[in-house]
Amino acid sequence: MLLVPCPNCGPRNAADLSYNGESHARPDPTTCTPEDWRTYLYLRDNPSGWLRESWYCSSGCRKHFTIERHTLTGELRTPILPGSKPGATKGETK
């Protein structure tokens, strides 16, 4: 079982949250080319290692947040709510 530390709700079973996948900066849809937009939509780094990704605390605080997770070991670190600084949350790493 994967324990995901929500910045608001603390460690929760991953089944209680929704997984959004890799977190990338969204290009400005008004200025970017279709190719850039599709690259943002579809292409992924998908590393075997540390990955910055986005989760949604769907059955808790209903907030989206980002977190770093090691895709091989399942280790989690530095959960961040958008707009806040790293470390300013109640989240715990596993």
Partner: peptide, 17 residues
């Protein structure tokens, strides 16, 4: 493991494992 091999030549794939 496709992405790990492709990343060696900097080819990004639309793949999640």
């Amino acid at each position: 493991w496709a992405s790990t091999i492709s990343s060696m030549v900097d080819v990004r794939l639309p793949i999640t494992t």
